[in-house]
Amino acid sequence: MIKRKDVEHAAALAKLKLNKEEKEKYTEQIGEILNYVDKLNELNTDGVVPTAYTVPMKNVLREDKVEKSLPRERSLANAPDQKDGQFRAPKIMSD
C-alpha cells in the first residue's frame, strides 16, 4: 500500500510542493492506480522475459556524420536568461 510518506518523497524528487489536501488526494489516487496495476501480478509470468519495449524494432542507428547545429542565437532564443552566449541558471546550491 502506498503511504503519504511515499507521495511526499516522490513529490520532493519531482520538486513539487504539495499542500495537505493534495497529499491526501494523491495518496488515495495513486493508491488506486497501483492497486489496478497490481492486477497484473495475478498473471503467471514464469519464463516471460521482462518487456521494456512493445514495438518490435531494434538497432535503429545512424552513421557517425556531423550535421549542422543550430545557429547559437536560435539555440538561446527561448532561454529565460542568458549571458555571453551561455544559458544562465539561477543559484544551484540550496542554503
Binding site: 556524420k65 550535421e67 547545429s69 543550430l70 547559437r72 538561446l76 555571453d84
Partner: peptide, 26 residues
C-alpha cells in the same frame, strides 16, 4: 566520435559556447 551520441552535432572541443547544439541535445 565525430558527432554526438544521439544527434549530428559535432563533438569538437574548444568551440564557442553552445555552438554545437541542436534541438535534440538541448
Amino acid at each position: 566520435t565525430e558527432s554526438k551520441i544521439f544527434c549530428g552535432c559535432s563533438t569538437e572541443f574548444g568551440k564557442e559556447p553552445n555552438e554545437n547544439t541542436c534541438p535534440v541535445c538541448l
